[in-house]
Design a protein around this nucleic acid. Structure first.
Lengths: 207, 207
DNA sequence: CTTGGTATTGGACATTGTCCTATATCAGCT
DNA sequence: AGCTGATATAGGACAATGTCCAATACCAAG
């Protein structure tokens, strides 16, 4: 074989993600991933010494996917803001097996450590975006307390919508479900929108 | 010993809940619970054949706690509505080890089956409460779609606030944190409140 | 004081994550 | 070509876990 280390590691991650997305993080073992790839469990641990390393690598993939697909820089309109979240939502569906289980993923010490800072930045980014939208005349001037609450709501919805959806197993996660939770974000924003903001918000849902 | 079956089963549940609340569902094993009670693991499985049975019993406890502490019947004001949720929030903190991990709890087939119906009732109860508040002149008349979205937001926040809080490990879950998430519920309600509704909402937070 | 059900022990089993040593494979050098 | 060192894979071990089962202890009723 001409498999380089990179190749095999990638194949392991691909297969592991696919299995985790269908069967769930807790029900997918190293042995199952290995078997599916026609290799021995010991070989998987050669590339990823522990399951924690594997999950960490997958989360890094999600982070990198977000970095490459979600625009950064100043947010100029409510539509832009929501479009960024729509892209993040899409990315989350590709890693749904991990994202639904965020609470357990974060129990891995290395992930908790790594994402402690990311977490703070995440909240900070939302708060900043809201400030920018206020400056742009898209949102009304509101108190810091209300900004904090809006931030918290957006954070909670955007992080746990897949978990909530997973509790209604009769409906698979698809674009319609995703749009439903996008609407919840919009609903949270709407009361603090200016007239211009409301117009932009409407455009975010013009199919 | 004069331990009856009921006694020992209760002691097992008490200990298991305490351990799960501090160390998390996935990190607490039958052996640990048994050891803490000075008995053998096999004896725990005598009362609860599988971990699933144990978790099922604990969830039944939570359900029963809610049944005995959260008023039922028609909701007459926004304050009443929020007070019910405040009580549910309190109850959730007593079972936080399970509630933060709802996604995994529901992976147990028997729990998924049992709570499928409870889940539907839960959503239905929120929707009905909103209708009642509209009838009471506490909330504005809003479309079914908006009712559905409000229901979804309330459901999501009230189910996953502990999970969100657990991702900020620097702050332990306490009354202040609980009130923060209560405020998120209130913020979701406020835009659809009538004048009377807003007054009642304010009373819900008068310490 | 026997008896029958309840409670508890002690140990087995399969499965899991992890680890370690031996072997295979292959690229680069002479 | 043949050696060599690093990389890759196999094979099997280990401890811990959930689960199960047979043997024993206990205890209340007859």
């Amino acid at each position: 074989m001409s498999n380089t280390k990179q190749d095999t590691a990638t194949r392991i991650l691909d297969r592991a993600l696919a299995l985790i997305n269908t069967r769930g993080l807790m029900d997918v073992g190293i042995r199952e991933v290995a078997k599916d790839l026609g290799m021995r469990p010991g070989n998987v641990t050669y590339y990823f010494p522990t399951k924690e390393h594997l999950v960490l690598a997958l989360m890094e993939r999600l982070r990198s996917l977000n970095a490459s697909t979600v625009p950064t820089g100043e947010v100029r309109s409510v539509k832009e803001f929501l479009d960024r979240y729509r892209q993040m939502f899409r990315n989350q569906t590709a890693f749904v097996g991990l994202v639904v289980n965020m609470v357990n993923v974060m129990r891995y010490p290395s992930l908790a450590r790594t994402y402690r800072t990311i977490e703070i930045e995440r909240m900070g980014a939302i708060t900043q975006a809201i400030s920018e939208l206020v400056a742009q005349g898209q949102l009304k001037h509101i108190s810091d307390v209300r900004i904090a609450r809006l931030t918290s709501t957006i954070s909670l919805v955007s992080r746990f919508w897949t978990s909530e959806a997973s509790l209604h197993p009769e409906q698979k996660i698809n674009d319609a479900v995703m749009e439903h939770y996008m609407r919840l974000l919009a609903t949270a924003l709407k009361p603090v929108c200016t007239k211009a903001g409301r117009k932009s918000l409407k455009e975010a849902f013009a199919s």
